[in-house]
Design a protein around this nucleic acid. Structure first.
Lengths: 342, 342
DNA sequence: CTGAAAGCGCTAACAC
DNA sequence: GTGTTAGCGCTTTCAG
């Protein structure tokens, strides 16, 4: 046997056709409509493909069929485990269904969201999964909608778009209730750059509702725009005379830094101070104290968005707002949150 | 003006050519060799492209030029922040250089590594960045090498392949030395599934060297194959009569769980027990105690691998082993590691 | 500096 | 069940 293994040069459908003494169309059918090919030739073609290590050229088939079997993914950053976990879910779900992904990170910058949309578009992605800074104002989103390109938002919640998300506002409303039950009165919300995340805004809104319902005046909002200074920013608040007894953080990463700030201020968590997060990143469960947080099924959110998008694609349509999924969350009590101190 | 914004239907180079009263070749040149087009027509064509929201079809150009401007990326999982951070670096570097990425996660399974290579190949990626379970035996790697497809390994270290990595063995050798200086004698290594990671094996080797050099007998290796039982597995060791005074963990995720195990056993870190990790994930710095760990520049490792690969690509060749980069690490003392107890 | 034309690899009518 | 053929959108000689 001259060569029993795949070589260096690219093999085309024509090479296979020639070797198998069939037409290229037949080879193509073996891959796309195997049932339309007689068992004998099918197996023979397959054997040759295997021998030559042939795989159809995706660009050619995309060009021809106008379907790429690729999904675009636009995320703020992979540095936050929420999105990394979600992307992991997306990667698994797509791979299982024969799709590939093309992700882009925006670092929360809207111009980059737009750029990402256009490059992904130029690759002919069949659909796009994205989390934008603000669904209400996102140009990237408008571009997709206007050009009628299938897409789903993840994490973002908005009535005018198909989304896969969790009710962050309700979650925080309920969370405040729990804290109040635990005797907390001086409760402060801590969040990052509000204008870079409509999720944070919604969570804040829920927080305010909860406080209002409980007849409490929220402590001044603690904003920690930069990770570099986050711990210090929180520490400052904790050193103030009538410091809060509970810190409700808009995400787990911030909560972990708040934990650190408490430590630096000599406060014990949860004895002196309760701290809660939001997101349910895997790592939170292994911390000491175990992070109290609103757990979202991050990987599943990714999986669901893939399924929602591909279902629509299969039916030759775009996802609709009526298909939007609100996934359940649950407040995980953990160890960083307890009875208020006296 | 009938339409001042991009429409729904795909615009091709022919549409632009027609509107601009030039040939498609000229439009193509405007994008690929703008200097070969007169200033006037160039600007006119650009204006029309902007007006119609035209972007060249990437599949068509890939098919024609045999260059995709896409890099494949193969990683074990995005659930471990090391790889997520690295991918973030890759995403940034590629985007800055006009490339896109197509990642796949393998969950440490070699069959999936292979599948990933073939699908990426079918998309005509210009090169591949990967971290494999074991560079020595990886079939995926052999496939790339044999077919002469450009690739770089990240994290893996192997003399026969171009790599971007850190000297994990040396790092652990030195780390053991530090621990010994701090008075530790009963030191145990904790690692995950050794056969799923040649990095862990190399780190273990370095650990053994270090122990040997110090004339110490290593405590029995603690293996924590599954995350679900990791804390318990470590706790068991910590409850043994002559427990170790220091735990050297093969990565940060394991170290964090070891921290938890110590807590569950009523041991104070670092007073009663020192714990070190490896990787330098961002979060480790914000923990309490701050994780002592061997810090690798994860995002930079991603960036370097992109640059190494693209440099070779630009020069029309494959990366060579002589271009392999060993990046510096540093042991970050943190707070989880201190003098041995008496 | 610009245009004409061929063809990258594949698929989907449409014949047979 | 199988083959023939046209063409997806683009780039790139080669002429002019």
């Amino acid at each position: 046997m001259d060569k029993d293994c795949a070589g260096v040069d690219p093999v085309s459908i024509l090479d296979i056709a020639r070797r198998a003494k069939v037409s290229p169309a037949t080879v193509s059918r073996v891959f796309n409509r195997p049932e339309k090919v007689s068992g004998a030739t099918r197996e023979q073609v397959r054997a040759i493909c295997r021998e030559l290590g042939y795989r159809p050229n995706a660009s050619a088939s995309t060009l021809r069929t106008q379907r790429s079997r690729v999904l675009g993914v636009i995320l703020p950053t992979l540095t936050n485990p929420v999105f990394a976990e979600c992307l992991q879910g997306i990667a698994q779900a797509t791979a299982a269904l024969g799709y590939s992904i093309m992700p882009a990170t925006t670092d929360y910058r809207v111009e980059i969201e737009q750029e990402a949309v256009t490059t992904l578009q130029s690759f002919g992605v069949d659909g796009t999964i994205l989390v934008v800074s603000d669904a209400e104002t996102s140009i990237a989103l408008q571009m997709l909608a206007q050009r009628q390109r299938p897409y789903v938002l993840v994490y973002n919640r908005h009535p005018d778009h198909p989304t896969v998300s969790v009710a962050g506002d309700t979650a925080l409303r309920d969370l405040v209730h729990e804290l109040v039950q635990l005797g907390h009165r001086r409760i402060a919300m801590v969040c990052g750059q509000l204008d870079a995340s409509d999720r944070a805004q919604q969570r804040l809104a829920g927080f305010m509702q909860g406080m209002h319902k409980a007849g409490l005046t929220p402590q001044p909002l603690v904003q920690v725009p930069f990770v570099e200074t986050a711990i210090e920013d929180v520490a400052r608040v904790l050193r103030a005379p009538s410091r809060p007894t509970a810190l409700v953080c808009s995400n787990d990463l911030i909560a972990i830094r708040a934990l650190r700030a408490a430590h630096e201020c000599g406060l014990r968590v949860p004895a002196d101070l309760s701290i809660t997060g939001f997101d349910g990143i895997r790592l939170g469960h292994d911390l000491t104290p175990i992070l109290s947080t609103v757990v979202q099924p991050n990987q599943d959110m990714g999986r669901h968005s893939v399924e929602l998008l591909l279902r629509a694609l299969r039916e030759g349509r775009q996802p609709t707002t009526s298909e939007s999924i609100t996934l359940p969350y649950h407040f995980f009590r953990g160890e960083s949150c307890a009875q208020a101190p006296f």
